Simulated assay, not measured.
Amino acid sequence: MTLSTIARRLALPVAGFVMMAIPGAFAEDRPGITTTNASADEIREFCTNIADAARDQRYLLQKQELENLQKDVDERIKTLEARRAEYEDWLKRRNDFLKTAEGGLVEIYKKMKPDAAAAQLAELDPEIASAIVMKLAPRQSSTILGEMPADKAAALTRILTAASDPNTSKDPS
């Protein structure tokens, strides 16, 4: 056997070894899926062994979901309580506002001439003046507001509007 014959015989296995070392050299080759010859008993035993862990994991996920839902409900309850408190505050302020004009004070202004009543109401605290105007008959109120200076009448009208609006908040911002 000659040296060239030996080299030819070694070249093929060496080339195959080199090709295996180069990534992607045999792109057509795919790794085979190896299966075990597990018996039904072994499979059942495996499933039985992991059943408790799987159940615990399911319970943990359900517990986390319930905790998240509870946090969401708690936040909504806080929002509703804040809105309820704001509405109760608004209702109290409105009732206090209306009580200010109760009694004989309204009767006094009912009997006054509109120009005299307008002059006196313009000098009063705007909340008190608007409470009185609210208690008067609409025709008399409009006459009095017509006799007042425009800026004072506008201020009273803003207060009257805010007092009758249920969406008015304590915080105007």
Rank of each mutant, 00 (worst) to 15 (best):
A7F: 04
A7G: 00
A7W: 03
R8E: 09
R8Y: 06
R8I: 02
R9L: 13
R9K: 12
L10H: 05
L10R: 10
L12K: 13
L12Y: 08
P13K: 01
P13R: 01
V14H: 05
V14D: 04
V14T: 10
V14W: 03
A15M: 07
A15K: 09
A15C: 02
G16C: 03
F17M: 08
F17R: 09
V18S: 01
V18F: 02
M19R: 12
M19F: 06
M20I: 05
M20W: 07
M20R: 15
A21T: 08
I22D: 01
I22W: 05
I22T: 04
I22V: 13
I22L: 12
P23D: 02
P23M: 03
P23L: 01
G24P: 02
G24A: 05
G24K: 07
A25Q: 01
A25E: 02
F26L: 07
F26S: 01
F26A: 03
F26V: 00
A27C: 02
A27K: 12
E28N: 13
E28D: 15
E28G: 15
E28H: 08
D29T: 11
D29H: 11
D29P: 04
R30Q: 09
R30F: 02
R30M: 05
R30N: 03
R30V: 04
R30I: 03
P31V: 11
P31E: 14
P31K: 14
G32N: 12
G32H: 14
G32K: 15
G32Y: 13
I33V: 15
I33P: 03
I33F: 10
T34Y: 12
T34K: 15
T34D: 12
T35C: 05
T36R: 13
T36K: 13
T36P: 05
T36I: 13
N37T: 12
N37L: 11
A38K: 12
A38F: 10
A38C: 04
S39R: 02
A40T: 14
D41I: 05
D41M: 06
E42Y: 04
E42S: 03
E42H: 01
E42G: 00
I43Y: 04
I43H: 04
I43M: 07
R44V: 06
E45G: 08
E45S: 14
F46W: 10
C47H: 15
C47F: 14
T48K: 13
T48L: 14
N49A: 15
I50H: 06
I50S: 05
A51Q: 14
A51V: 03
A53N: 09
A53C: 03
A53V: 12
A54L: 11
A54H: 07
A54F: 06
A54G: 00
R55E: 11
